[in-house]
Each structure stands twice: as C-alpha cells, then as structure tokens.
C-alpha cells in the first residue's frame, strides 16, 4: 500500500517533469532569441542549408563543365569567383559542393551520435562491468590525437568521401558517449525512474521514453559543436586527397587543387576556404548560444 502511494506520487512527478520540460523549452527559446550571436549563427546555418537545397537554381554554370579557353579567369561579372584551372565556374562548383561538404559533416555527426548515444546510454544505465568495458574502449579512442584515428581508419578502408564520413564519425563517438553516460547516470538516480519500473516499464521504455529526452540538451549542444569540427576535419581529409577526389566540387578538394595555383590564381583557394570558415563560424556561434541557453550552469 505504502509503495503504491509513492508510486503514484512519483508518476505525478514524471508528469510534472514533462511540464517543466515544456517550460524549459520556452525559456530556452527566449534565451536563444535574445542571444544575438546565436541568432547570427542560426541565420548563417540557415543560409547554407538553403544554398544546399537550391544550388541548381542558383548556380549560373554547370559545375563540371570544362572549358579550357576560360581557365583561370579572375573574378569578374560573369564568373563572380573566377574560374579554375579547367575553366569551370568556381561559384557554381562551390554551390554544388555545399551538398557534399555540409552533407558529410551532418552524416558523420549523425553516425557518431547514433553509436555514441547508444553506447553512452548502455554504459550509464547498466553500470558495473558493462560500463567499465565501454569506458575503457572510449578512453582508447580518445588516446589518439586529433584526426589521427580518422587517418588510421581511412588507411584501412581506403580513401573516399564515404570512408571519410565514417572515419570522422567514429571520432565523434567517444565525445557523445561520455556526455550521455554521465547524464544517464544522473537521471537514473531520480526516484521517478524507480517508480516507473515498479509499474512494469521495461528497460527499453525507461531508456528511450524517460532517460533519452532528459539527456537531450547536452547532446544538442555537443552536436552543434561537433558539426563545426566534423566539417573542418572532413574538408581537411579531402584537402589531403583522402576524401572527395577530383573533379568533385567538395570544398576541401577544391582548396587542395587551388593550392597549386596559389601564385597565379589565389582566388581558387580563397573562396572554398572562406565558405568553410563562415559555416564553421556559424556553428560555433550557434553552439555557444545553445550552451548558454541549455546549460545555465555554464552561463556567466
């Protein structure tokens, strides 16, 4: 009888948490919209996403169309960003390339987030030896400096954009897993989780209906920050010739071919790099704002 009372109380508590979640969302929204930097970031990201979608409409030329008599023309009214060594219009290539560069970034973060969140939930929820094993594996993944783990993976899988996506994604796994593991452990301790268990919820329901929504905000913050790094790393690998291959208009690959013409046609390297920088800046601005809005602890 006594346990029944506490159970229903705790379920009310669960409901109350849902409501506070709504309130939190509202306060999050107001903090975000008040944060000018975050808004600038959101606008930048929005613009890029739009560019991805309507690239064919915007592009004045075919990105793959070689016309050697027009090669290496500096920016002009006709070719706003000039043409490359094969006479292709750089602006059009950049517009089309957005699909590759941004797409790889999102895909790799989704990949890393999926496995990272799963591992983190399992480690945090089950604890004990499961946690020990998963945590050790994560430690080892973090022991590789920077993009070297990605390089190692590419060396095994071979170059290519898909392999770059996987390699960069793997690198994100431990970062998501760590955050989720910590938050899961905290949420698991809350008493309403026990109460839900006593009324018959199984692990699956508890994890996905009750724990996951509660660890969402750190995941989102991390995701936004990771997108910036993932886009940078993927472009870097393509720059090294390990990702997208010519004639792909992926920005890192474009930058790489532009490097050979740094003396005669610097614009070939300048524009793709500028595009990457502005996008990454957008994600960083947005990520900073998100962190302030979602994590009041970190706010100054």
């Amino acid at each position: 009888m006594a346990s029944k009372v506490t159970t229903t109380q705790s379920i009310d508590l669960a409901r109350a948490r849902k409501n506070t979640r709504k309130e939190r969302w509202q306060s999050f929204w107001s903090v975000m919209t008040q944060n000018k930097a975050a808004m600038v970031g959101a606008v930048i990201i929005g613009a890029y996403l739009l560019m991805m979608l309507i690239a064919p409409i915007l592009a004045p030329f075919d990105p793959y169309d070689i016309s050697l008599e027009d090669k290496l023309t500096p920016p002009s009214m006709e070719h706003w960003m000039g043409t490359d060594d094969k006479g292709r219009d750089i602006l059009s290539r950049i517009l089309y390339g957005s699909r590759l560069s941004i797409g790889v970034g999102f895909a790799s973060v989704l990949f890393g987030a999926f496995f990272g969140i799963t591992l983190g939930l399992i480690a945090g929820y089950y604890g004990k030896w499961v946690d020990t094993i998963i945590s050790r594996v994560l430690d080892i993944m973090l022991a590789f400096p920077g993009i070297l783990l990605a390089l190692a993976i590419i060396s095994a899988l071979g170059p290519g954009l898909i392999n770059v996506t996987i390699a960069v994604g793997v690198f994100s796994i431990p970062l998501f897993a760590r955050i989720v593991r910590g938050s899961t452990m905290e949420v698991k301790k809350l008493e309403y989780i026990d109460a839900i268990r006593t009324i018959g919820a199984n692990d699956f329901i508890i994890i996905f209906r009750h724990i996951l929504p509660n660890v969402m905000s750190p995941i989102i913050v991390q995701g936004s920050m990771r997108l910036a790094t993932a886009i940078l790393s993927a472009a870097g690998l393509s720059f090294l010739g390990l990702g997208a291959q010519p004639p792909s208009p992926e920005w890192g690959a474009m930058l790489s071919s532009g490097r050979d013409f740094l003396f005669s046609a610097p614009y070939m390297a300048i524009f793709p790099g500028l595009m990457i920088s502005i996008l990454v800046l957008g994600f960083n601005l947005f990520g900073d704002g998100l962190r302030d809005a979602l994590d009041p602890k970190l706010k100054k």
Binding site: F239, L255, G258, L262, A269, P272, G273, I276, S277, L281
Partner: peptide, 22 residues
C-alpha cells in the same frame, strides 16, 4: 578568438603563405 577556432588550419596556412611568402 572565435575566428581563430573557425578558420581551417590548411586554409589559414595557405592565406599566410600567400600574404607573407608570395
């Protein structure tokens, strides 16, 4: 500082090279 964390190092390297060397 925000720019510093947003610029790809390989691009920054090329820019510096263009400016100071070329």
């Amino acid at each position: 500082a925000l720019l510093g964390i947003s610029l790809p190092s390989f691009w920054l390297g090329l820019l510096l090279m263009y400016l100071f060397s070329v």
